[in-house]
């Protein structure tokens, strides 16, 4: 049984936002009442809040920095975020900014996390230079746990090279994620794969989660 609150963390640029949005859409498809909270105080561009209209149209509630303040130079966490803990009718996805710096945003909600169980996911992309091996991934994982004062429950294997991703890269990434899982005792929940190549991976050891890519510069959106 999944917990009501899912938190997506990981190294900066590991693909948390894409996975968080896709996860919210998945829950929405299952008929759940879904809320996604954008707690990314690190990134100025390419955030969940950019997809607010699309998500609202799907019936997903988006809690994010108000538009008027989205371009302020310091990240702003809206007061409304508290409602995800209080209104238990929602299934919640929390998109957290990268690294320990981004995870600090979670610390202030610690007392709520002590009252209610949560699922915290740690997203891994082994084609990011700073998380290309087991040791560096584990270093980031522990830093994020320390900063957020929360424990990671699941790993998400999300090795990708954006539009150049190949199946062999994904499989290789899974191997590294598996080693991280072995060393930390944290299970891999799923492998995230871009939807257009998801069918190329067959009989996989881990569950495959096909994902649609949302964060794209204008010329790539046009090419889609």
């Amino acid at each position: 049984m999944e917990n009501r609150i899912r938190i997506f963390t990981g190294h900066f640029g590991s693909g948390k936002t894409e996975i968080a949005i896709n996860y919210a859409l998945k829950l929405n498809n299952e008929g759940k009442k879904v809320c996604i909270a954008d707690l990314d105080i690190v990134n100025p561009y390419f955030c969940t809040r950019d997809e607010e209209k699309f998500l609202n149209d799907k019936g997903i509630r988006v809690i994010a920095t108000p538009k008027d303040l989205a371009n302020a130079e310091l990240g702003v966490i809206p007061l409304e975020t508290l409602s995800v803990f209080n209104d238990k009718s929602y299934d919640v996805v929390i998109d957290v900014g990268g690294d320990d710096k981004g995870a600090i945003a979670l610390g202030q909600f610690n007392r709520y996390f002590r009252e209610e169980n949560y699922d915290m996911y740690f997203v891994i992309n082994t084609l990011r230079p700073e998380t290309h091996d087991v040791d560096s991934i584990i270093e980031y994982l522990y830093e994020i746990e320390a900063a957020s004062r929360l424990k990671v429950n699941y790993l998400v294997s999300n090795t990708n090279l954006s539009y150049e991703t190949t199946v062999s890269q994904i499989l290789n990434g899974d191997k590294i994620a598996k080693e991280v899982s072995k060393r930390t005792g944290i299970p891999i929940k799923f492998t995230a794969v871009r939807e257009d190549i998801a069918s190329e991976i067959k009989d996989h050891e881990f569950k495959i989660m096909p994902i649609h890519i949302f964060m794209m510069p204008p010329w790539r959106k046009f090419e889609e």
Partner: peptide, 8 residues
């Protein structure tokens, strides 16, 4: 490190 990496 892999030959190609994903970077900001």
């Amino acid at each position: 490190m892999p030959d190609k990496v994903l970077m900001k």
